[in-house]
């Protein structure tokens, strides 16, 4: 099962097992990780599961849908080219070793 590293704004790193077919958001919530709020529960109605994907790993993640691109306008922290909603990052074998950075704030 892929191991994903979540990097907190202060640099602290947490590594979680993200089962195949489970999102990076869901794994964070299930493990009680601070920094992912996931207000809407993965329905793409909010932008409180925002992460920055390690820039050179973006090609390992699924492409952004138009809905995700639209909803990323609501991120509380700056939207960057590597911004993603982690509810849309559903783990595949390529997620092994993925690193995501948590924003300063989600709300």
């Amino acid at each position: 099962m892929p191991k994903v590293t979540y990097v907190h704004p202060d640099g602290a790193r947490e590594v979680l097992d993200v089962p195949l077919g489970t999102s990076v958001m869901r794994a964070a919530v299930t493990n009680g990780l601070d920094g992912i709020v996931a207000e809407c529960g993965g329905e793409m109605m909010c932008a409180t599961c925002h992460v920055y994907v390690e820039a050179d790993q973006l090609d390992r993640t699924p492409p952004q849908s138009d809905d995700e691109k639209a909803m990323l306008e609501f991120t509380a922290s700056e939207r960057k080219p590597n911004s993603r909603l982690s509810c849309q990052l559903v783990a595949t074998p390529e997620f092994e070793g993925l690193v995501v950075y948590l924003p300063e704030t989600q709300v």
Binding site: R26, V29, T30, N31, G32, C40, G41, E43
Partner: peptide, 29 residues
Amino acid sequence: QRPPLSKTYLAGEAGVDELWLRPSEFYAK
């Protein structure tokens, strides 16, 4: 979470583990 009760949970697409707002250890922590 209640919204999935009439959507993905009802349909059997989501399990009960996906409903908890936070794991039970969260509260004490």
